[in-house]
């Protein structure tokens, strides 16, 4: 590692130590999916993400999870498989109820 890279890493570590820990940031990243964060919270998150690749990835990951679930809302076969369906016994039972109208 060059001297420049070591210095760069030391500066990032020094900044990171003074920021709220990653755990607190993951809570705010989660909450930002459900409500608008306050200005203070937004600044806290953004300044943390500038130096933290891991929390940036966490944010991308939870966004990806939600996009996938939204996608599966209309295409549940993505999650449970297109071959998944009613068992024959349930199919027969429902048919009988429909015929009897009860």
């Amino acid at each position: 590692m060059t001297i420049f890279k070591r210095l760069h890493w030391a500066v990032i570590q020094a900044i990171a130590r003074r920021l709220p820990p990653c755990r607190a940031i993951t809570h705010l990243l989660s909450e930002s999916r459900d409500r608008k964060l306050s200005l203070r919270e937004r600044i806290t998150v953004r300044s943390h993400l500038v130096v933290c690749t891991w929390c940036t990835r966490f944010g991308h990951q939870i966004a990806c999870l939600e996009e996938a679930l939204g996608f599966a809302a209309d295409q549940p076969e993505r999650l449970v498989g297109a071959e998944t369906g009613l068992a024959d016994s349930a199919r027969d039972r429902i048919r009988k109820h429909l015929q009897a109208g009860d």
């Binding site: 549940p76 449970v80 369906g85 009613l86």
Partner: peptide, 9 residues
């Protein structure tokens, strides 16, 4: 039946 079942599941 099958698509409703997957939706519920």
């Amino acid at each position: 039946g099958d698509s409703l079942f997957r939706y519920a599941l």
